[in-house]
């Protein structure tokens, strides 16, 4: 299963806004440090993500690079 939210960890400034607006609460600030000294955000529950794009819309640093939705395979 491919990830629905792609994060550019180098650009993240741990502002927490995406975590805050996420309706499904599937994002969190990670324990890692990026080169700037910020702890970048991560998607920890891909399955629960509904690809609403709120995180992308609110992110001031273009750190949420892409939001995608799985295409249902036609039976």
């Amino acid at each position: 299963m491919e990830t629905r939210v792609i994060v550019n960890e180098e650009r993240c400034k741990s502002c927490n806004l995406c975590v805050e607006v996420c309706p499904k609460k599937v994002l969190r600030i990670s324990d890692r440090l990026n080169p700037k000294g910020y702890r970048p955000v991560e998607l920890f529950d891909n399955e629960a993500c509904i690809s609403c794009g709120f995180c992308y819309l609110i992110c001031p640093d273009a750190a949420i690079v892409e939001v995608r939705r799985p295409v249902k395979a036609k039976a």
Binding site: R4, L17, S51, P60, I64, E66, V67, R68
Partner: peptide, 22 residues
């Protein structure tokens, strides 16, 4: 996967100088 949102090409790779959350 279908892309719904993607950072546009007109936004450069240069990280902004703004404070976190600005």
């Amino acid at each position: 996967m279908k892309t719904l949102y993607k950072v546009p090409g007109a936004v450069t790779d240069c990280p902004t100088t703004y404070c976190p959350g600005c």
